[in-house]
Structures are given as structure tokens and as C-alpha cells.
């Protein structure tokens, strides 16, 4: 900590939000996104992970017209406006699903499992849904 930060009123914790479920089939993706958008206002260190079927949350070209549900995939684009910049996607999860970073609606940092596990192990709070 720098000397001028010592009087900072807030404890900054590292919060990681882990998404492992696809959108639409269940509500977890949407409601986790709602948490992240609120969390961004708290001046904590926020990161978001997409792994396993969670990578489908940020797949390009979602069109929900015919299922009658709200397409919230564009909202992920707002994460940048909320200063949520640490967005990690697990390489192995993309590979297993035949996807690459080009298939995703937002720019992300693609990490292999080993690198992602290092970052996970540095968190103070891990919230999964």
C-alpha cells in the first residue's frame, strides 16, 4: 500500500464472480450479471470468469426472439463502462465447445486452467451461481 492510501476509508477485497452455466436454460447467468453490475459500484476489485457452459453466456449472435425471453447478451458490453475489466475465459472450456475468442461478444482474457487457477487462488471472495 502506498503512503497516501493509508487513510483510505474502504477495505478493497478481490471479488471473483464465476459463471459456469449457460444462459436461458436457467436464470443463473442473468441474475449473476445483475450482481456484477451492482458490485461494480462498490469500488472493490472485481473479476468475472466464464468457464464450462458459462462461456455460452457471451457467445455472439444470440437471438431470443422465438423463445420470448429477453436477450441480455448485449449487457455484457456494459461491463467495460462499469470499469469491470478483468474478464477471464478458460481456454479448455472454449476448446471443448469448439469455440474461440472470436465467437465472443466482448473482448476477454483467455487463460488456460493452470493460469486461471492461480488467479482464483488470489481472491478474497468467490461468488458462483
Amino acid at each position: 500500500m502506498e503512503p497516501w492510501e493509508e487513510d483510505g476509508p474502504e477495505v478493497v477485497k478481490r471479488f471473483m464472480y464465476v459463471n459456469r452455466k449457460a444462459p436461458y436454460g436457467t436464470i443463473y447467468a442473468l441474475e449473476c450479471l445483475e450482481v456484477v453490475l451492482i458490485a461494480a459500484a462498490f469500488d472493490q476489485d472485481v473479476s468475472v470468469v466464464f468457464a464450462d457452459d458459462g462461456v455460452f453466456q457471451i457467445k455472439k449472435n444470440q437471438d431470443t426472439t422465438a423463445i420470448g425471453m429477453k436477450n441480455f447478451s448485449n449487457t455484457y458490453r456494459a461491463l467495460d463502462d462499469y470499469d469491470v475489466e478483468k474478464i477471464y475465459v478458460e481456454q479448455e472450456s472454449l476448446d471443448a465447445r469448439g469455440l474461440t475468442a472470436d465467437d465472443l461478444i466482448i473482448p476477454v482474457e483467455v487463460l488456460n486452467a493452470e493460469s486461471l487457477s492461480e488467479i482464483m487462488a488470489q481472491q478474497d471472495v468467490v461468488i458462483s451461481s
Binding site: 464465476v18 459456469r20 443463473y28 482464483m120 481472491q123 478474497d124 471472495v125 468467490v126 458462483s128 451461481s129
Partner: peptide
């Protein structure tokens, strides 16, 4: 342990 992570 410092952190509990649930694999949901």
C-alpha cells in the same frame, strides 16, 4: 481456509 469456493 481463507476462501470458500462453491462449485455450483
Amino acid at each position: 481456509h481463507d476462501v470458500a469456493q462453491s462449485w455450483l
